[in-house]
């Protein structure tokens, strides 16, 4: 939502002046996520193996960059994740252990 609103106010796709580092980092993270989502939806339309290879390489590189951005944000306390509870993990294991037989 934040990213969408900023893009509406900022049609030139340039970073807006006065944004905090946290806001800029979220915006950059969302950009990488959007690029990856776009590639994943388009690579399946490619009929040429060479083109798919180029797109797959791009996707992997973007994933590494996106993870790095997240890790820095996580270190700074800007993007916290809730740890899964051991009981919930055990429940998931039991639920799915024989589902695909």
């Amino acid at each position: 939502m934040q990213n969408t609103m900023q893009n509406q106010q900022n049609p030139g796709n340039q970073p807006m002046q006065g944004m905090t580092d946290q806001e800029l980092a979220f915006d950059l993270l969302y950009q990488e996520k959007a690029l990856m989502a776009n590639i994943s939806s388009e690579v399946v339309e490619g009929s040429q193996s060479g083109l798919r290879n180029v797109l797959n390489d791009m996707f992997m590189q973007m994933g590494q960059d996106q993870l790095q951005i997240f890790q820095v944000m996580n270190q700074k306390g800007w993007y916290q994740l809730k740890p899964a509870q051991p009981q919930d993990i055990q429940t998931a294991k039991q639920k799915y252990q024989n589902m695909c037989v």
């Binding site: 776009n38 590639i39 339309e45 490619g46 040429q48 060479g50 797109l55």
Partner: peptide
């Protein structure tokens, strides 16, 4: 490269 019209659309979109 035997590009299809879809291939070309994908390339232009990604660029």
């Amino acid at each position: 490269c035997n590009l299809s019209t879809k291939d070309l659309t994908v390339i232009e979109d990604q660029l």
